[in-house]
Amino acid sequence: MQQKILAPLAGRILKVHITPGARVEEDDEVLVVEALKMETPIFAPCTGAVKEVCVSEGDSVEEDDVLAVIEE
């Protein structure tokens, strides 16, 4: 099953810790979004393999944009 990681808030992608194919554990920090000059880490919703990373560092994202897809 696939799970999408959605942007919980609008902001700028500061860091991307994952690459396609990598394995992640639930609650791993996968990305960091900067909003209102604060770094907000985004955590993996489930354990699985990264299927797709849809953003790169420096991108602006809106709330609910798909950031990455995890294959459970």
Partner: peptide, 15 residues
Amino acid sequence: HKVGAEADKKNYLLM
């Protein structure tokens, strides 16, 4: 946001 995240790190209260 920070105090909320201490209790549940996946709770994004900022916005």
